[in-house]
């Protein structure tokens, strides 16, 4: 993992990246990435942000939309506003009340066609994964984050980029957009 130099990549709310993003620093997404995002530290999809079809990092935090495979080599956290439409591969999963998932959750160490990065870390990460560990895990936003997930929650979603992932074009699957039935946590 790269030493923390306080640097990061931030995709603004009105920015769209089509293609692949590779980073040795945190990637914070307020806007949209259509493609693969791989970070050696963390990927944080903020409320209003949208990524897919693949996200991979030691820590993946989803407060917005993720469509496709979400690979958290160490852990995946889905916040109250997070939506995942696809499969989650991680040894530790934190899913907060209000968060929504449509897809498989795989916590036994098997993954999607694994990349070198996942394969290398998977064994040790899987061993470390215990229920207790999952409870302990504070919902940390990496310290490099200037705007943490929680601080963003209050703000109005940006009038972006249509935040509808390609996979979401299938409305019959799961109505993730309906907020009315949700309890406040």
């Amino acid at each position: 993992m790269a030493e923390d130099q306080g640097t990061r990549t931030e995709i603004g709310p009105e920015t769209v990246v089509s293609g692949d993003v590779r980073a040795d620093e945190d990637v914070v997404v307020f806007g949209r990435i259509d493609g693969t995002v791989v970070s050696s530290t963390a990927v944080i999809v903020e409320d209003g942000g949208c990524v897919g079809p693949r996200v991979e990092a030691p820590t993946v935090i989803v407060a917005g939309w993720a469509a496709g495979d979400v690979v958290g080599i160490e852990r995946v956290e889905i916040t109250e506003t997070g939506r995942v439409l696809g499969n989650i591969y991680t040894p530790r999963l934190i899913l907060l009340d209000g968060g929504a998932v449509k897809g498989r959750v795989v916590m036994d160490g098997s993954g999607p066609e694994s990349t070198g990065a996942t394969a290398a870390v998977r064994t040790s990460a899987a061993v470390a994964a215990t229920v207790a560990g999952a409870r302990r895990a504070a919902p940390v936003a990496p310290k490099a984050s200037r705007t943490s997930v929680s601080s963003v929650r209050g703000r109005t979603p940006p009038p972006v980029v249509p935040v509808v992932p390609r996979a979401a074009a299938n409305p019959g699957l799961l109505d993730l957009g309906d907020e009315s039935g949700r309890k406040d946590s």
């Binding site: 009105e14 993003v21 980073a23 620093e25 945190d26 806007g31 493609g35």
Partner: peptide, 12 residues
Amino acid sequence: GPRTSIEGTVSG
């Protein structure tokens, strides 16, 4: 960021 590389299109 300085440790990030993107192949593709960036717009907005």
